[in-house]
Nucleic acid binder design. Structure first.
Lengths: 377, 377
DNA sequence: TTATCGAGGTGTATCGTTACACTAACCAAG
DNA sequence: CTTGGTTAGTGTAACGATACACCTCGATAA
């Protein structure tokens, strides 16, 4: 076993000479066994091999079955999916369109979706759009060619603003979007009960004694942003409180926003605005955990103690929120369940159910950690 | 054998096209335009359409070109990739095998790879293995059927321990792996200069006056872990220092480990071990940022101040490390560049370069934030 | 006896695209 | 007038799997 053999292995056979003109690519395509090879090796017809591969065992005798199994194993036969798809027209692929997986919420959701899809035997085609409409369009057009017609999209902007509407009929499952926003013929939505979530957060603060509560969000227009804002107003009104709203308008936040650190920045720059409010709020609810964590860092730098001087609640319960100091109190979104549900809707579509029309709402759960206490003043 | 009664009623394409208009039913099986339809519509041969679609415009007259362009636009023709692939044997797909995208380092890397791949016109097939060998195996076997033979893998375990070696000839680009670990015929590696990274960290602490420095890592066996550990020992020895090593052996950390919060846990449980060391170290270098953040949280809970009582350096500079308090000093890994390089190697493979054999090493860069100061004692 | 049935197969057209081998003009040069 | 070379095409056989029609037995029923 010497380590000297650094020579690159060359394609062994299939010696073909073509025109020496141009960059003729190497025959990378390995000579993989075809169904015909297996049939020949097993001494049966290709139809029988096909039946075997597709589990139609009742049409095969025991001995034939064994001979085919043996040949398949010996040749390492894997059916060519391109040929299969060309003939059947069916695909086992799901497109997954997401602003950016670096955002921890999206990352966890994509992870959950991928796990569920793989379990169901589907391949996932991932696209991080960065909310770039052109990217999304190119991606979806490619998918049409690939025969993929089922799409899961996360937090799309409303139809007018950006969602690319493919002319061919995709079945779409939208997470964090409103049915009336994306006017699509075959749409399922998966959402989170934002109103209840906000109410849970406000209720928690209310019980601790807080009466002056601010809400911090950013100017993007997604379903969750609208719903949470409305939910906050309602939660406050229901308790006879007046909400101090801080909506941060970030200049370079209009188009290419989203991801990771930028969301933190939103929270950071919102902190001074919160502190300017009079009377000063004793608690803050943030649109999501990332903004909350940005606020937290900024409050700390301003010499304020959380929860000593100010209580803070986030929403989502992404995994980073347990990492801050103090650990963030937040409202949990059941990410895994939502991802699994999305895949489930897709599978139902493909199983032949009529064009989907379901709206699923998941329930929030308060996760109490360390950023809330009784009001100081 | 040959009989004349081969007449089977074969539906013509023209018949399949039912122009149902009105509120009858949804056009469920929307049959997409084929190259033949376009040829007919443009009054040319399918070969000419094929040439047009593949940019071989020099074989087309100006007028023909325009007629085809028009027909393609009118019919919304998108080539069927399954048919194309079946004929050519080529795919524009890259498999991406990663333990879990929830881990922020992997998430950022996958993001970078996806962006680079899309830019180059490649589809990405993502698989979060959770280091489950069976999952990885199933995934890769499916890909063989899909004609994908190019694979990017992140932080695979060494060959013996787990990396699934596909029998068919994949071209593999491994990020965070050693050439000698995965004995594969066509392998490129993309790595980070771990020794220099650690040296940068130790140097930074040394300059601040630290002489007693501990290193915290976890027991998994990956390339980066081995290299960083060795690098730490070397960096200490070169400065005439003795390193206090803390290797945490976490029981339920053996097999299904990795992701997000769990890495934090490693840091958390390592903190008491660090504080037990005598003489007590004045600074700690962590294997990566996540462990460092876990340590940070735990030190704080123990009533210690960072960097007052103890300095701390991480490695990677994942985006979360700027979120902690105090913000983490770390050594930056050029994630975007590494992702782009990985895709570049794949494309070179497909462009016909002989079976890849390159090892690329990226350089670290110290990112000074707030967790390091002069030693207290 | 003949008809019928089902189990266990076989043969081949077909999916949509590209590769390849042609051809039909036209033009320039020997 | 051939010969040869472009230019701008055309016709058709693959690629590998599946669907479907068909076939051949032996057993069972009428």
């Amino acid at each position: 076993m010497d380590d000297e053999h650094m020579e690159t292995t060359r394609p062994k056979r299939s010696e073909r000479r073509s025109s020496a003109q141009g960059a003729t690519s190497v025959d990378v395509a390995a000579d993989r066994a075809t169904i015909q090879d297996v049939a020949k090796a097993a001494g049966v017809s290709n139809t029988s091999v096909s039946n075997y591969m597709n589990g139609r065992l009742e049409r095969l005798g025991l001995e034939t079955r064994a001979r085919i199994a043996d040949a398949v194993g010996r040749l390492g036969f894997k059916p060519n999916q391109a040929a299969r798809q060309l003939k059947t027209g069916k695909t086992k692929g799901i497109a997954l369109v997401v602003p950016s997986i670096v955002n921890p919420f999206n990352g966890q959701l994509v992870f959950a979706i991928e796990q569920a899809a793989v379990k169901a035997g589907y391949a996932v085609h991932l696209c991080n759009t960065m909310r770039d409409n052109a990217v999304e369009k190119r991606f979806l057009e490619n998918l049409v060619g690939l025969g993929v017609s089922d799409l899961i999209t996360i937090a799309p902007l409303s139809a007018r603003k950006g969602f690319y509407r493919p002319q061919s009929d995709f079945s779409v499952v939208a997470i964090d979007a409103d049915r009336s926003d994306l006017r699509l013929p075959r749409l399922d939505t998966i959402n989170f009960n934002h109103e209840v979530a906000i109410d849970l957060a406000v209720e928690h603060l209310y019980e601790l004694g807080h009466r002056r509560i601010a809400y911090v969000t950013d100017p993007m227009i997604t379903y969750s942003r609208r719903k949470r804002l409305a939910g906050f107003k309602a939660a406050m009104a229901n308790r006879g409180l007046q909400g101090d709203l801080v909506v941060l308008l970030d200049a370079d936040h209009g188009a290419r926003d989203i991801a990771d650190a930028e969301m933190l920045e939103v929270g950071r720059s919102a902190a001074p605005e919160v502190l300017k409010l009079r009377p000063r709020p004793t608690a803050v609810v943030a649109f999501n955990d990332m903004i909350a964590l940005g606020l937290l860092a900024s409050f700390r730098q301003a010499g304020l103690s959380v929860p000593g001087d100010l209580s803070l609640v986030g929403i989502d319960d992404v995994w980073v929120s347990q990492l801050s100091y103090p650990a963030l109190t937040t409202v949990r979104q059941p990410i895994e369940a939502m991802g699994a549900a999305a895949v489930d809707r897709i599978i139902n579509h493909l199983a032949g159910a009529v064009g989907g029309g379901s709206d699923t709402l998941f329930l929030p759960e308060l996760t109490v950690r360390e950023t809330c206490g009784e009001p100081s003043s």
